[in-house]
């Protein structure tokens, strides 16, 4: 023990040599978030003739640890729109509060002028792009599902870069690779979405949630699903994957060392 409290608990210079300060970068540009911490995985959605179906599982992972298993990643806005969040959970919570305060402000005026899903998506796009331009992005991939100004089904995507696009079916994260091809079988174009029934749309989403649970190691068999139509939002937050079959599993080859 020496008489320099600032040296207590540190490697002793006489034993280990002087500390090499070049490892501790004290200069250089100011840095914001470099990676998400607690994350949610894919969000899926598909348009059908009267509305949109959207789903996301209830898991928040901490790296590869399945840390929280009751996380609701579908958030409703003004009973007409559902926003599904993938990516960083604390950023999702921030956005949820932002939308909450927006909803309160909108309700200062009791009559008319409700923000529809399209308005909300435009707003989120501006928020996300502003934050990425500040080099301080909100680390999310977001789907907005609801109805547009003409009460037609609306579905659109926005992510941490402020990138936005729209399609009859959308998926974020792993789902973009694993579920999107399946969903496109159902709705290759807008025309097909206009003919799709609600039952088929729900069935398609559930099928994809199962595919994702099979192949995405950061997913969960508990999920939330919402159906948005003119009648409003039907949100179920405690669903369980049904009729799982892992029979295909022993035929999988290619992950790591093969023993057979």
């Amino acid at each position: 023990m020496n008489h320099f409290p600032q040296a207590w608990g540190r490697p002793r210079d006489d034993v280990y040599g002087a500390y090499n300060h070049s490892y501790l970068q004290m200069t250089g540009p100011k840095q914001h978030t470099q990676s998400p911490i607690v994350t949610g995985t894919s969000v899926l959605a598909i348009k059908f003739k009267d509305g949109v179906v959207i789903a996301a599982d209830n898991l928040a992972s901490y790296g590869s640890l399945a840390r929280f298993t009751d996380v609701k990643r579908l958030r409703t806005f003004n009973d007409t729109t559902v926003v599904g969040f993938g990516g960083d959970v604390s950023d999702m919570q921030y956005l949820d509060r932002l939308l909450n305060s927006l909803d309160i402000e909108e309700n200062y005026y009791p009559e008319g002028h409700r923000l529809n899903a399209q308005n909300l998506h435009t707003y989120l796009t501006k928020v996300m792009y502003k934050r990425r331009s500040d080099f301080n992005p909100l680390w999310n991939a977001i789907l907005v599902a609801g109805l547009d100004g003409e009460e037609k089904p609306f579905l659109a995507y926005v992510d941490l870069l402020g990138t936005r696009y729209s399609s009859p079916s959308l998926a974020t994260g792993f789902g973009a690779h694993l579920a999107q091809p399946v969903l496109r079988e159902y709705v290759p174009d807008e025309k097909a979405a206009e003919n799709l029934t609600q039952e088929t749309a729900v069935e398609a989403i559930k099928k994809c949630m199962k595919v994702l649970f099979y192949r995405d190691a950061r997913s969960l068999d508990k999920y939330s699903i919402a159906v948005i139509t003119k009648e409003g939002v039907d949100l179920k937050e405690d669903e369980k994957l049904e009729n799982q079959s892992w029979a295909f599993a022993d035929r999988i080859r290619g992950y790591g060392a093969q023993v057979v």
Partner: peptide, 8 residues
Amino acid sequence: MTYGRPIP
């Protein structure tokens, strides 16, 4: 710009 909505 922000909402794509004419102001009420």
